[in-house]
Design a protein around this nucleic acid. Structure first.
Lengths: 112, 112
DNA sequence: TACAATAATCCGGTTTTTCGGATATAGCAA
DNA sequence: TTGCTATATCCGAAAAACCGGATTATTGTA
């Protein structure tokens, strides 16, 4: 039950839901998250750490860059919640807008 | 997205998850929730108000008593989350223990 | 009407969470 | 080595959430 509560705490913040929405289509680097959500670097990093600590996302290091993606081997509950969010977040106004921005940024290849 | 965040905030507290677990088998009155979770009256009432405000539960008045149950006409997202929680909460230690206490209390018919 | 019982709301104080600038760490390049 | 970049962590302050006793509101009953 404690783990369950921790999981929902991690999801109980708009910024973190927006980050998860960005990760639905694949891994994204921190610099893109900062740019799209207009977050200070420390804030972006902290929210990502909270999601990672909850077992919702994982990171991959590539030199000085850090790429985040949805956790592949997450708990069954986390997996179900991510699935539900995957159906829902892209249909919200902010979620769709963020994903659109990410799509544009990927075409420009600002940060590969 | 704001509604989504509010929904997860409502779920991000152990007491409220325990209350939802108790409601999985049907409506429960406030006095039983107080007794089983050992909560002061104001605390129980406040958590129930948060769940109701999030659209997760609804109340039925019967004289001076208030009976709470899972919301029948909740949003699609809330419905999915309740479904996931319905599979998960009863399998947790605390959840199972609480449900057991409720079952015993209902047999004694302390508070019909 | 007066009183008892149930539950919602109020109030203040405490705890938790969040924030962003500053600092620390690690990798890459000159 | 020196410097630059990307990211994580630290720190103090601000905001939000939580708590439970006290009060209020509503209903049922004598």
């Amino acid at each position: 039950m404690k783990n369950t509560t921790a999981l929902f705490k991690a999801l109980a913040h708009q910024t973190r839901l927006r980050i998860l929405c960005l990760l639905l289509d694949g891994e994204v680097c921190v610099c893109q998250i900062m740019a799209i959500l207009s977050l200070p670097q420390s804030t972006a990093s902290r929210h990502l750490a909270i999601l990672k600590n909850a077992g919702l996302v994982e990171d991959r290091r590539d030199g000085t860059w850090a790429h985040y993606s949805l956790a592949r081997n997450c708990s069954p509950l986390a997996g179900q919640l991510l699935e539900v969010l995957g159906e829902h977040l892209p249909h919200t106004n902010i979620g769709a807008e963020d994903c659109q921005k990410l799509s544009e940024a990927l075409q420009k290849k600002d940060c590969a």
